[in-house]
Design a protein around this nucleic acid. Structure first.
Length: 617
DNA sequence: GCAAGGTC
């Protein structure tokens, strides 16, 4: 019997289906000489400190450096504390039985670093010695699966990938467990002060933004706004210069030739620029972009969106949700026209689905090279009925985005009119000539103000138009906004660097903080630790969070770059570099951060009250 | 009691 092991049940079932294996057993599917089984993500984790004899949180245990790490069955939290997850225990027993009977083991966990680790931890935990082969595919279509099985690789080809995964795992344990205990112990051991490679830089970003806003000193500046009239249509223009000096702007303001002041000569049109702008459709959704949209449109937290999506996935209504790719391959694209046919009767989008049947589909989201473990989120085409309002909302975002992504460009006409009258003024107008993909949700750009979406009258250079009204505007510079879940998720994708360009940001995703599957839980962890709170839609630090930030802000553990440095080394290990050297460096760093925190933590004893920080005026 | 990673 050949045993195939997948990362999750959905993939195991899919593989069985392609082979025509249909006998459903408890925890696997049998047929055609194969058994298809699966894990549920990581079944095993590195054992906690107490399993190495580090009982209680004590300074003399630090730094904890196990000579050899142990694996333990994944735990779940119950009212009696943490216990082995019985479902995991049972599945491991099933896998063990199958491995014992196996003539051949085929590894079909996801094609990536963690997928490799999920299998290897099971394999070593069960002390299995049989050789194994690796299925390496990035698309789950029948053809891709069959092709993958014809080209199975020797399991040992992925030993270096396992090494890099193993290093990632143990390094996170060493740094996280030791730093957490060191800070908690030195701060009096009254509360858990957790630290980690991902959570601490995330906390640092939230705290730094909060303090930046709190310390922001607004600057006053002035603008002049005028209303002009042409063919009975009035339109607004604003001075190009922001004036800092009040008497200067008042002097200029008087000279603006408006009708009411008795100077009706008005404004001279000095330039008119009108050009079309093409806006390509947005890319399909990955988990993070969908979490951001759901947070903006519905106020859902990242965690809520993930749960709703998981639910839709389990009901077979959407494809795998924890994807970091916003692309599909050509094989999946081949099925898109048929998929769109399923939505021609959709209450909201039916008309656009019908339209797409008549036109060439946009292929911006089609790029097999940018599909990693999983492709972008798509509806499956199964009929959806009786969904809760929240689930329906998420489902519609998936369907709507699919229709947008394959739709036509939106063509706008951008008009800029330059006017001279004591100062230089500019009027901006945008007219949508062809809505294209924007007709799906029928929305204008969400970040831009409505007043920019106005049409301007036809004017020509040299014309003089009456100015019917002028206003002196006193304005203040504004700080950046507080992070909310949407902006934090976006910032995590690029480790806090602000990159507006969608494609460039996408290219940086490998150096982001956390992964699509873990970002929601990072936010929840910071809330559980009472480091941050949700206030309306914003994420604000507590005094406890700020106190921890003060202690660690200049240390490596609070820098997003730490992940980037690790990733570089892990990639070298994957291509064959020595593991020893990296491990030695991590142990050195563990010793350093532990001793630093044992000293620095004593200073925050009095600052841990869990009330909110004072309001920012 | 504690990390980050994956998923029911």
């Amino acid at each position: 019997m050949k045993i195939v092991i997948a990362e999750k049940p959905s993939v195991g079932r899919e593989l069985a289906k392609v082979f025509g294996a249909t006998t459903r057993k408890d925890g696997y599917i049998e047929g055609k000489g194969y058994s298809f089984t699966w894990a549920f993500g990581h079944l095993l984790q590195l054992a906690p400190p107490q399993d190495y004899g580090f009982i209680g949180w004590r300074k003399q245990h630090l730094p904890m450096l196990p000579a050899k790490f142990k694996l333990a069955i994944r735990k779940i939290k119950t009212k009696d504390g943490f216990v082995e997850d019985p479902a995991v225990r049972k599945q491991l027993d099933t896998i063990k039985k199958l491995f014992d009977e196996a003539t051949e083991i085929i590894v079909a966990t996801d094609a990536g670093r963690e997928g490799e680790l999920i299998f290897r931890y099971i394999y070593y935990y069960l002390k299995c010695k049989k050789p194994f082969k690796r299925l390496w595919i990035s698309s789950q279509t029948d053809e891709a699966i069959k092709d993958g099985f014809r080209n199975l690789k020797p399991g040992t080809d992925y030993d270096t990938l396992f090494n890099s995964a193993h290093c990632r795992s143990e390094s996170d344990w060493l740094v996280g467990m030791n730093a957490t205990q060191a800070l908690s112990i030195s701060a009096g051991n009254r509360t858990v002060l957790s630290l980690g490679r991902v959570q601490t830089p995330t906390l640092a970003m939230i705290c730094a933004r909060f303090l930046e806003i709190k310390n922001f000193v607004p600057q006053t500046y002035f603008q002049i706004s005028i209303q002009l009239i042409k063919d009975e249509q009035t339109f607004k223009a604003v001075s190009v210069t922001n004036y800092k000096d009040k008497s200067e702007v008042e002097g200029i303001f008087k000279l603006v030739e408006d009708v009411a002041s008795g100077f009706p000569t008005g404004g001279n049109i000095t330039a008119v620029e009108a050009k079309p702008r093409k806006e390509p459709p947005p890319l399909l959704h990955d988990l993070s972009s969908l979490q951001q949209e759901a947070n903006k449109k519905k106020g859902f937290t990242a965690d809520q969106t993930l749960n709703l999506l998981q639910n839709l996935y389990e009901s077979k209504l959407v494809s795998y949700p924890r994807t970091g790719s916003r692309y599909i391959g050509d094989d999946v694209f081949a099925g898109i026209p048929a998929l769109i046919d399923n939505f021609t009767n959709h209450a909201e989008f039916g008309k656009q689905a019908k339209f797409l049947q008549t036109t060439t589909l946009n292929k911006r989201s089609v790029n097999a090279k940018k599909v990693t473990d999983h492709h972008a989120i798509l509806p499956t085409g199964e009929e959806a009925y009786g969904l809760s309002a929240d689930k329906q909302a998420i489902y519609d975002m998936v369907v709507g985005r699919m229709l947008e992504a394959f739709h036509q460009e939106c063509i706008k006409e951008i008009t800029k009119i330059t006017i001279s009258s004591a100062a230089t003024f500019m009027a901006n107008g945008t007219v949508i000539r062809s809505a294209g993909w924007r007709s799906v949700f029928n929305e204008t750009e969400d970040d831009k103000k409505d007043e920019d979406n106005i049409s301007l009258p036809k004017v020509a250079v040299g014309e003089q138009l009456p100015i019917v009204e002028k206003t002196l505007l006193e304005k203040q510079t504004k700080p950046k906004p507080m992070y909310n879940e949407a902006s934090l998720l976006k910032a995590l994708e690029t480790s806090g660097k602000e990159i507006e360009d969608e494609e460039l940001r996408y290219a940086m995703k490998d150096s982001g903080l956390g992964t699509p599957a873990t970002r929601a839980s990072i936010i929840e962890t910071l809330i559980t630790r009472e480091y941050i709170i949700r206030e309306k839609r914003n994420l604000l630090p507590t005094n406890k969070g700020l106190a921890v930030y003060e202690v660690v802000k200049d240390k490596q553990i609070a820098q997003a770059e730490l992940t980037g440095q690790w990733e570089k080394r892990l990639e070298e290990i994957r291509s064959g570099a020595s593991v020893k050297e990296f491990k030695a460096e991590i142990i050195e760093y563990t010793k350093t951060i532990t001793s630093e925190l044992l000293i620095a933590g004593t200073g925050i004893l009095g600052k841990l009250e869990e009330r909110k920080p004072e309001k920012v005026s």
